Amino acid sequence: MDARFLGIAELVEAPSVAVVVDVMRAFTVAAWAFAQGAEKIVLAGSLDEALALKARHPEWVAIKDGPLAPGFDTVNSPGLLRSLDLGGRTVVHKTTAGTVGALAVKDASLVLCASFVVAEATARLLRTRACGAVTFVVTGEDGRADEDLACAQYIARRATGSATDPSDFLRRAGDSRAAAELAEGVRQGVHPDDVELCLELDRFPFAMIATSENSLMVLRPYAPTGPAAA
């Protein structure tokens, strides 16, 4: 597999296959939303779009980065989201990096959104579809976020079927700037367990595929089939 690792600003054309990585915290939160019963996640392009969607669909659950704001139901925190019952609900999600990265590759033939909690399922899907060239979008810090790069590199290795020790990749993520900012309370809308939850490798058995539905970018869980790798 030919893997490229690019920041959002480095995307000059739509890749064939894109894996958009946001470990802390967008796509850890998205996975938790599905685990809590959400049917689908609409990836909003702006806060205004998220609020407009919420206004048109009051029953939807709106999530944003940072502190809670009027019109939103909760914030981008896996520690807070895990206590919510989202059974059958639609979630509207807007973050500063993850959702932006997914929308930047919306024209790709296959868009996966990933973090450590869905790493193996994501790699397995890439293997079963025999993806020859994959662009990993490192969303944080203009493509320099080590937690996202570490996760992307780990998934890329697992996608080839290679036995890979995850400990160094998880250590890099735990030592990252994002992890420190979450642990030290620099970022708002944080639960004390957020970093730990973001570093839970393969907690969930599904990958997450984003597709265009009625002009919206919609994320859904997908359980890959086929044999597991070593």
Rank of each mutant, 00 (worst) to 15 (best):
M24D: 10
M24G: 03
R25C: 11
R25K: 05
R25Y: 06
R25W: 08
A26F: 08
F27V: 11
F27E: 02
T28F: 00
T28W: 02
T28R: 01
T28Y: 02
T28K: 08
T28P: 00
V29F: 15
A30I: 04
A30Q: 09
A30P: 05
A31L: 04
A31Y: 05
A31D: 07
W32L: 11
A33R: 00
A33C: 14
F34W: 10
A35L: 03
A35G: 08
A35K: 11
A35W: 07
Q36S: 12
G37W: 03
G37V: 01
A38V: 06
E39D: 13
E39W: 09
E39I: 01
E39P: 05
E39S: 14
K40T: 03
K40I: 06
I41C: 14
I41A: 10
I41L: 10
I41T: 13
I41N: 10
V42C: 13
L43D: 08
A44M: 01
A44E: 01
A44F: 10
G45E: 04
G45K: 00
G45W: 00
S46P: 07
L47A: 10
D48Y: 03
E49A: 02
A50R: 00
L51G: 04
L51N: 00
L51C: 05
L51D: 02
L51S: 07
A52C: 08
A52G: 08
A52K: 12
A52P: 03
A52M: 04
L53K: 11
L53G: 00
K54G: 12
K54S: 13
K54T: 09
K54H: 15
A55H: 12
A55R: 12
A55W: 02
H57V: 10
H57A: 09
P58I: 01
P58S: 07
P58R: 00
E59D: 15
E59S: 12
W60C: 09
W60F: 15
W60M: 05
W60T: 09
W60D: 13
W60G: 14
A62L: 05
I63H: 04
K64S: 14
D65F: 01
D65P: 10
D65Y: 07
G66W: 02
G66V: 04
G66D: 07
G66A: 11
P67Q: 06
P67K: 07
P67L: 07
A69G: 07
F72C: 11
F72T: 03
F72P: 07
D73I: 06
D73Y: 03
D73V: 07
T74Q: 09
T74I: 08
V75Q: 06
V75N: 01
V75E: 06
N76F: 09
S77K: 03
P78C: 09
P78K: 02
L80F: 14
L80S: 09
L81D: 05
L81V: 08
L81W: 06
R82W: 01
R82P: 05
R82F: 03
S83G: 15
S83M: 05
S83I: 05
S83Q: 14
L84G: 04
L84T: 14
L84F: 13
D85N: 15
